[in-house]
């Protein structure tokens, strides 16, 4: 009966066994404050037309053979004279730590996230 995501907090009403949340079903949708020029579903950033002069981040997501796969990719990029940098997640079971994301964002132009078993 009691929802826990409402406002005011149900904690205020714990002493009242008959209290019931009046909130609309969670999560409450928001209304768009803009002139609605852009699609509701946000578009992905477009890929660059060329990799010339770009730094390519190669992100090892932590699966067993990611390194092997990325080594091969890196070899091919270097063969084309492209710059790469290597990054790694500690484990594939969790999202990348903030410092890894920040390093990629500040040091690279594109990122390849490898998935290989």
């Amino acid at each position: 009966m009691t929802q826990t995501n409402c406002n005011p907090s149900p904690v205020l009403f714990l002493n009242n066994p008959n209290w019931r949340c009046l909130c609309p079903p969670w999560p409450h949708p928001l209304r768009d404050p803009t002139a609605e020029f852009t699609p509701l579903l946000r578009e992905r950033q477009t890929s660059p037309e060329s990799l010339d002069g770009k730094t390519i981040a190669l992100l090892d997501i932590g699966k067993a053979r990611s390194r092997e796969f990325l080594d091969r990719l890196e070899q091919q990029f270097h063969g084309q004279g492209l710059l790469t940098r290597r990054y790694a997640k500690p484990t594939n079971t969790k999202i990348a730590p903030l410092e890894v994301v920040q390093s990629i964002a500040t040091e690279a132009d594109v990122v390849i996230s490898a998935l290989s078993d």
């Binding site: 969670w26 999560p27 949708p29 209304r31 768009d32 609605e36």
Partner: peptide
């Protein structure tokens, strides 16, 4: 204004 639904 259009609604922007949220994930839980």
């Amino acid at each position: 204004s259009r609604q922007v639904p949220l994930l839980e």
